[in-house]
Every structure is written in structure tokens, then in C-alpha cells.
């Protein structure tokens, strides 16, 4: 079902765009430029005049439009999964994505109506990443490679299992710390980079400095974990291209991500740089998730090849 895979990929790409739009809303301080929700200045969302999308409204209303599009795409994907994918568990992954995107929309509304309460804003950022992970998972589960490589994925290497399973969790925690830093206004609490208030460790402490420092520390730990995983794979699983490739990609991305983090500080949180840091963080998480799922491929149910081919035949006829 190539079309279903392509549809899932489209949803994942649209979600990256949505995360970028959300990043620009926060980076430009436009979160409350449209004070009502779910309407926009009293208009039905899709009827809001384009000519009025000025200043902060361009970012906030644009974010809402992209979010609605992603929501509609998700509904369509869930319907397709229930109609055409024979794997029961896959359908429920689709439903989980739909529930997540609905919850995310409601959280977005709450942030507007209650003037960006910090816990809700952080949750909104965290749920966005979970939804993105679900869309990436759906794209992976519908990919031809997921069906073909089952036999080749069996292994007894507990080290790679631990590394590849722990990596997405570690990165997600790091993103949550970053979101907490961002939504508590601590992004410039340590204004220098790569040094920390002129040294290696802050000489003075408060919540903002602590959360900022924790995010930097998390960046170092994440980078080391990714390179450790790459090293292990190159040493023990050199033939597993399906694992080596995403890990090389991860290693490249994490270096870029650290650079973007530093640039965000040095640029005084320039909106485009800051947003690039947010988006790259999401892609790092998604790449680690793909790696983790591929390493643990043998733990998933074996698809019935006969059933899959029957569905494919029905679809083409």
C-alpha cells in the first residue's frame, strides 16, 4: 500500500511544518495576537480575511490553519487505516494519533483563553512531539521496508536494544526541559555560549539559570549517547544499513542542533534561529524513534503476508 505510506509521510511532513509554525508563534511572542478561540476575531477560522493576517496574527492564525489541516489529514488517515490496513494494532495507533491531535488542539485553545499559562504551554509543546512521533511511526509502519526486513531484524544484542530504546526517551526529556526553559523565559538566563556565565558551571543559581544549565547538560548527554550508539552499531552491526543510516543522520543532526542552540543564545533568540532549533530537535527525536523501532522490529507482531497481499490486491482491483 504505497499510497497509504505516502499519505502517512505527507502527514509527518505537515506536522514538521506545524511544529515550525508553532515555534514561530512562541519566538515572535504572537501567542495572544488572536484573542479568541476557536474563532479568530469572531470569524470562522477558514473565513478569516487573508488581508488581516498582519503582524503577530500571521503567525498565530497561520498556526491554527496548519493545525486544522493536520487535524483533517489525521482524520483521513485514520479512516484509511480502518478501511485498508488489516493490522488491528495499526488502526489503534491511528486512533491514538487522532486523539492526540484533538487533545493538542484543545490545549492550544486553553493556552489562548487563559493567557498562556506556563504548564499548559509546556504541555502543548510536549504533546506536539508525541503527535509527531505517532505520525512518523505510522509512516514507518506503512513503509515497504517495515514488511520486508522482518527476518533480518532478529538479534540478541541487549546493548543496542537499551541504547536505541533509551535514546528517544532521553531526547524527549531533553525537549521537555527545553520547552520549560522556553516557556518560563529562561532562554537567555545564561547569555554566553559555549561558556556558562564565564565558566564551566554557573557561579550563581536561580530557577532560570538552573533550567537553562540543565538543558545544556542534557544536550551534552544526548550528543554522547548518540555517538555511543553510532560507535556500537559501527562495531557490532556494520551490515545493518537500516540502523546505521538513521544513526549517522542523528549524529549529523545533533551536531547541527547543538550549533543552533548556541546560535539561539548568541542571536538573542532570533525567531528564525530559535524556531530552527525547535524543529531540528523534533527531527532528532523522530530519527531516534525510527532507530528505536527498527532495532525492536522483532518485538512487533508478524504481519500475515497473505492478508496483506489480499488487501493490496483488493485495492488495486
Amino acid at each position: 500500500m504505497t499510497w497509504l505510506h505516502n499519505y502517512s509521510r505527507l502527514l509527518a511532513v505537515a506536522t514538521v511544518l506545524l511544529i515550525a509554525a508553532g515555534g514561530m508563534v512562541t519566538s515572535t511572542g504572537a501567542g495572544l495576537s488572536v484573542p479568541d478561540w476557536p474563532s479568530s476575531y469572531g470569524y470562522f477560522m477558514f473565513a478569516f480575511p487573508l488581508s488581516s493576517m498582519v503582524g503577530g496574527i500571521f503567525y498565530e492564525h497561520g498556526h491554527r490553519l496548519i493545525a486544522s489541516t493536520v487535524g483533517i489529514l489525521t482524520i483521513g488517515l485514520v479512516i484509511c487505516l480502518w478501511l485498508y490496513d488489516p493490522r488491528r494494532w495499526m488502526r489503534w495507533v491511528g486512533v491514538a494519533a487522532l486523539v492526540t491531535v484533538i487533545l493538542q488542539g484543545i490545549m492550544g485553545g486553553i493556552t489562548v483563553l487563559y493567557f498562556l499559562p506556563t504548564p499548559v504551554s509546556i504541555s502543548h509543546a510536549g504533546i506536539a512531539q508525541i503527535f509527531f512521533c505517532l505520525t512518523v511511526s505510522l509512516a514507518l509502519f506503512t513503509s515497504p521496508g517495515w514488511h520486508k526486513t522482518y527476518e533480518a531484524t532478529k538479534h540478541n544484542d541487549h546493548i543496542i536494544s537499551t541504547l536505541a530504546t533509551g535514546l528517544p526517551i532521553l531526547i524527549y526529556v531533553q525537549i521537555l526541559i527545553g520547552a520549560t526553559m522556553r516557556h518560563t523565559g529562561a532562554g537567555l538566563a545564561i547569555p554566553d555560549f559555549p561558556l556558562v556565565l564565564g565558566g564551566l558551571v554557573p557561579h550563581t543559581w536561580n530557577f532560570s539559570i538552573a533550567i537553562h544549565f540543565l538543558h545544556r547538560l542534557g544536550g551534552i548527554i544526548t550528543t554522547l549517547a548518540i555517538f555511543a550508539t553510532l560507535g556500537h552499531l559501527l562495531t557490532h552491526h556494520r551490515t545493518r544499513r537500516d540502523l546505521i543510516r538513521p544513526t549517522w543522520f542523528l549524529a549529523l543532526l545533533v551536531v547541527i542542533q547543538v550549533g543552533l542552540g548556541g546560535w539561539t543564545v548568541l542571536s538573542q533568540r532570533a525567531p528564525l534561529i530559535n524556531t530552527a532549533h525547535v524543529v531540528t530537535g523534533a527531527i532528532v527525536l523522530a530519527s531516534a524513534l525510527v532507530l528505536g523501532l527498527r532495532v525492536n522490529r522483532h518485538r512487533f507482531p508478524i504481519e500475515n503476508p497473505l492478508r496483506l497481499s489480499t488487501t493490496a490486491t483488493r485495492e488495486t482491483s
Binding site: D36, W37, S39, I79, V95, I102, I106, G109, L113
Partner: peptide
């Protein structure tokens, strides 16, 4: 059934102007 539940949820999620 799923679509019906989602429709009801959407109807219930009316917002205010704050």
C-alpha cells in the same frame, strides 16, 4: 461509531471569547 463520537466531541468543544 468512531466518527460519531468525534463529531459529538467537536460539537462539545465550543470556545468562548475569553
Amino acid at each position: 461509531k468512531l466518527i460519531s463520537v468525534l463529531t459529538m466531541m467537536a460539537a462539545a468543544c465550543g470556545g468562548g471569547d475569553g
